[in-house]
């Protein structure tokens, strides 16, 4: 009887397994294997190079540029979007006239597709007639092309990501803030606790599980969300806004150097894995779960 139940169980799980293995596990393993071989060309079949592709990275100036850019991009977008999300959540975590409208407007960027968001921001950045340039010209400042200049392109892409993500994280913080009981606030008020002290000593520790969850997501998104780069800068000018994932796309699907792209992918996954697991191990000790 037991054996028969097992057959049913496997039969029911089989369709899910087939799709999961075909589209997730096999490609992942294949990617890892491909990264040790050269890219097959018309005249020359693929040959085993061992760590050849990885050695190539060390001397690849665009890869190094992409790594540096990704690090800067993550260092800006992760803390900025989390802090902004928390500030917005605190702003709308009370009742006043129009709070619903305010919550909705904070959340709207989340609903929009990133491609559309990038197009909106292209208009903001557009030199000459864009929103930012109109303000600059009004104050008598010269026209500026933020998305089109090497020294500002990366930051203008980062701002779009922050704008897009903060609203989404706000929802989590808002939900977390609403689980902090009102009586704790009152008990602290009786003791003469200022609002800032209460926030620092009670609210922040109590919403730590959410902060951890949000920060893991922010890290993943910092490497994963590159749609707006396609629309706004295509990694340029002069690779100024080149991010790791965008570089993988370019290598793999524009230059068709699939083996090198596979090696880059392995690096990206390794980075995400280490950072994500590290966050949990380090932060977990300091997080109070109910």
């Amino acid at each position: 009887m037991i054996k028969r139940e097992w057959i049913y169980a496997w039969a029911l799980l089989l369709p899910a397994f087939v799709f999961l293995i075909t589209f997730t596990h096999l490609p992942a393993v294949q990617t890892l294997l491909n990264s040790f071989w050269t890219t097959p060309k018309g005249r020359r079949a693929s040959v085993f190079t061992g760590l050849g592709n990885y050695e190539q990275m060390l001397t690849d100036p665009i890869f190094i540029k992409a790594m540096v850019n990704s690090a800067i991009y993550a260092a800006i977008t992760i803390p900025a979007s989390i802090v902004l999300a928390l500030v917005m959540a605190l702003l709308v975590h009370r009742s006043f006239r129009g709070v619903g409208l305010m919550r909705m407007s904070f959340f709207t960027p989340t609903v929009l597709p990133l491609i559309a968001v990038a197009n909106i921001w292209l208009f903001f950045y557009a030199p000459g007639f864009g929103l930012i340039d109109q303000i600059r010209l009004f104050f008598g400042l010269p026209s500026a092309n933020y998305a089109g200049q090497p020294d500002t392109a990366l930051y203008s892409v980062a701002i779009v990501a922050i704008w897009k993500e903060a609203g989404f994280f706000m929802i989590f913080f808002l939900a977390a803030l609403q689980t902090v009981p009102q009586t704790l606030r009152e008990a602290a008020a009786i003791e003469g606790c200022s609002r800032w002290t209460f926030f620092r000593r009670v609210t922040l520790p109590l919403i730590m599980p959410t902060t951890l969850f949000v920060s893991v997501n922010a890290v993943i998104n910092a490497f994963r969300l590159v749609d707006h780069v396609f629309v706004m800068t295509k990694g340029g000018p002069d690779n100024a806004s080149m991010l790791l994932l965008y570089y993988i796309y370019e290598t793999g699907f524009r230059f068709w150097d699939t083996a090198y792209a596979a090696a880059l992918t392995v690096v990206l996954i390794a980075i995400l894995g280490v950072v994500g697991i590290g966050q949990f191990f380090i932060a977990d000790k300091r997080v109070h779960y109910k």
Binding site: L184, E186, A187, V202, L206
Partner: peptide, 13 residues
Amino acid sequence: VSMVFQSYALFPH
């Protein structure tokens, strides 16, 4: 004044 609440209002963390 000091106060004791029905829910005790202890800080869980």
